[in-house]
């Protein structure tokens, strides 16, 4: 009964979106982090999603009808860190510059809203599947 599968599929999506929200929170928290060394400064992180095929429920073509989603890995943004002249900072290099993290707060905020929407949609899918299952169990009463 694939209605039960909805819980697995939507559950995996909730997990993936939670990781996405976590990286966003991490990026926003470190948006103002500075370092004297451009190699050590915080770089924005983004999760990469991948479809997770369900082989157990595969049909004769070996192709599963349902699949969840998983986080393949976290990639760091390769955008160059910004330099800022702050000779008073204890982290400043000899020329008086510090390197800012390359986090773009606007990008992070839109990413957060998108993750929020996706999360809510999947919760909705779980609730719908639960309602349908409960009504099916109550069939004929």
């Amino acid at each position: 009964m694939s209605l039960f599968n909805v819980f697995n599929v939507a559950g995996s999506a909730l997990n993936a979106e939670t990781i996405r929200l976590n990286t966003t929170a991490s990026n926003l928290a470190n948006a103002e982090s500075v370092s004297g060394d451009p190699g050590k400064v915080y770089r924005a992180r983004q999760p990469v999603f991948q479809t997770m095929m369900d082989r157990a429920g595969a049909n004769t073509d070996g192709e599963g009808s349902t699949a969840g989603v998983r986080v393949l890995g976290i990639v760091e943004s390769q955008a160059p860190p910004q330099m800022r002249y702050e000779p008073g900072s204890p982290l400043a290099n000899k020329q008086g510059y510090v390197y800012m993290s390359n986090v773009n707060p606007i990008e992070e905020m839109t990413n957060m809203i998108s993750a929020n929407r996706s999360f809510a949609t999947n919760v909705d899918a779980i609730n719908t599947a639960r309602d349908l299952l409960l009504k099916t169990i109550a069939m004929g009463r």
């Binding site: 009964m1 694939s2 909805v6 995996s12 479809t51 699949a67 969840g68 996706s118 349908l132």
Partner: peptide
């Protein structure tokens, strides 16, 4: 009813992969 049940799974799968590149 069986078919609609299957379709819930397929559509939930689409919703779950809304942010997956190439899906």
């Amino acid at each position: 009813l069986l078919l609609y049940g299957d379709r819930v799974g397929v559509l939930a799968n689409n919703l779950a992969n809304a942010d997956t590149p190439g899906f």
